[in-house]
Design a protein around this nucleic acid. Structure first.
Lengths: 107, 107
DNA sequence: CTTTTATATAATAATTTACTTATATAAGTA
DNA sequence: TACTTATATAAGTAAATTATTATATAAAAG
């Protein structure tokens, strides 16, 4: 994949209001899917699909923790993706529960 | 329009390979539509429509010169759009003619 | 004034996107 | 083992996108 195609893929991944909101949530650190469903006000599968796009573009990473899955921003971003993240106002959310938000994990 | 919506619009405008190529051409300065048609290898109306999207998003500016129309990058860009432009490898093109590429203009 | 040239707009069709509901998977719990 | 919970995948659908061809506009040339 040439650099322009990679760029296109990454930009397509962030050119959607809901996915920008997801990134705005993740600015604060790891978030589990259930909390993100709450923020976006769309169905759980919709959130799952959006997260997948961001993951496929290499913008976010996942960590499994029991039944839960936590997502976070990739530590290293292309400069232009980082600039986008920097521009986003953080969005805060309610933690769905103490079990979900604990720091231990499977990987 | 809130800032997230503006951001979404600008990012949608650049999340397409052909429009990224247009920006890559414009890095060198003003270009007339006929030269851009040559670069993209799609129909003239298609190029017109792509340019319109970039213009509507406030990323490029137009200047009329007789029958021709020249497009150039907006002097001021949002930091994230600028970061995208910076990342693009310039694309060179053939000037369609001396009349077209002269510097005088109507506005 | 008619013709040519450069560009824009309109109408349309194929493709992609982003939801939805239903179902699958996989881990935790009674 | 059966039930619940968290997430993912599948199938279907409505809306958006991006090309195409045909046509309009507007300036320049003859």
């Amino acid at each position: 994949m040439d650099s322009l195609t990679i760029m296109e893929k990454q930009l397509k991944a962030v050119s959607d209001a809901n996915r920008l909101k997801l990134l705005a949530c993740l600015k604060q650190g790891e978030v589990c899917v259930c909390d993100l469903v709450d923020v976006l006000q769309v169905s759980q599968p919709a959130v799952s699909q959006q997260l997948r796009k961001l993951k496929d573009a290499g913008i976010i990473l996942e960590r499994k923790k029991g039944t839960w899955k936590h997502y976070r921003l990739h530590e290293e971003q292309s400069p232009y993706i980082q600039a986008i993240i920097d521009e986003l106002e953080p969005i805060s959310y309610k933690h769905c529960g103490p079990t979900c938000s604990s720091q231990e994990g499977d990987d």
